[in-house]
Computed example of a mutant assay.
Amino acid sequence: MSVLILGGTREAATLARACANAGVRDCLVSLAGRTAAPQALPLPVRIGGFGGVEGLVRFIRAEGVTGLVDATHPFAARISAHAVQAVAQTGIPALALHRQGWVKQAGDIWLEVADLAAAVTALGIRPRRVFLTIGRQGLPAFAAAPQHHYLVRTIEPVGDALAVPHLAELNARGPFDARAEAELMARAQVDVLVTKHSGGASTYGKVEAARMLGLPVVMIARPATGHMPATQSVDEALAFVAAHGGM
């Protein structure tokens, strides 16, 4: 194994398939393990954390990693920050494969906030019907506002992540069509959408649907993770993998 791909996203899966199709196979995809049934990939996969920056540095040195691609979710701030530090300590080349952010369009009603706590505050005191699409990990923050009626969509079951009296749950994986999203939101009488500014096409349908329905969107900003050379092109990421030992 030469190139380590930090994955868990559609972009990482696309890169893995591109590597396999191009005969670039000396690489490993690392997944955090938060999804019980991750998508099958045509490259070797490891699941689980590394144990912080020190653990990632040890892994890089022990496994002879000669290059790293950070293709994690834009909100996987911790592992991305650890990757920046580990790359600095080991001196290996690295590239971030970023998905393109969404651009506000005419008709969008966005309230842009810095984090989950600010999103909770933005909902206000008056009870509202909230479509919450932020992933399972961020749900506990909204227990501070139990007066709202929440429609929560996650890949994994919510379980006890959000203990509120009014909760409806959907378990689904994108992509999601804008028209179907609009029908869902209208049927559930949603007042406001809360989402992370994840970017990409797979989940943009809900943002389009909110625009179609004239609904406000509480848009949580991407966290800062440090600096690493970046691209939005899978082809460029494939070229990086091939150039740094993944053959």
Rank of each mutant, 00 (worst) to 15 (best):
Q189N: 13
L215F: 03
V217M: 03
L193V: 08
I220N: 02
E208W: 13
A210S: 10
P216I: 00
V194L: 04
E208D: 15
A201M: 13
M219V: 03
R211T: 13
L213D: 00
M212R: 14
A210Y: 05
P223R: 01
L193Y: 02
K206V: 06
L213N: 07
A210R: 10
M219W: 06
K196T: 02
S202L: 14
D191C: 00
L193E: 07
A209G: 12
T203W: 11
V194D: 01
V192W: 07
Y204W: 12
L215W: 01
A201P: 07
P216W: 01
P223C: 05
S202N: 14
V190S: 08
V190Y: 00
H197I: 10
V217W: 03
S202M: 14
G200Q: 08
G200Y: 03
A210D: 12
T195N: 08
H197E: 15
L215Y: 02
H197L: 14
R222I: 11
T195D: 02
G200S: 10
K196E: 01
G200R: 06
M219I: 05
E208Y: 14
A209F: 03
I220M: 02
A201H: 14
L193H: 05
S198T: 12
T195P: 15
V217G: 02
G214V: 10
L193A: 03
V207Q: 04
I220V: 01
V207L: 11
E208S: 15
V217N: 08
P216E: 05
L215Q: 08
K206D: 04
S202Q: 14
V194K: 06
E208N: 15
P223G: 00
T195Y: 07
A209H: 10
V190R: 03
G199P: 00
V207E: 00
V217F: 02
T203I: 09
K196L: 00
S198F: 05
Q189H: 13
M212E: 01
G199E: 06
V190P: 07
M219Q: 04
V217I: 10
E208I: 11
L213H: 11
P216G: 05
P216H: 04
V194M: 06
V218Y: 09
S202E: 15
A209E: 06
S198Y: 01
G214H: 08
Y204E: 07
V217A: 05
A209L: 03
V217P: 02
P223H: 01
G205A: 15
V192E: 14
R222G: 00
S198E: 07
V194S: 02
L193G: 08
A221R: 00
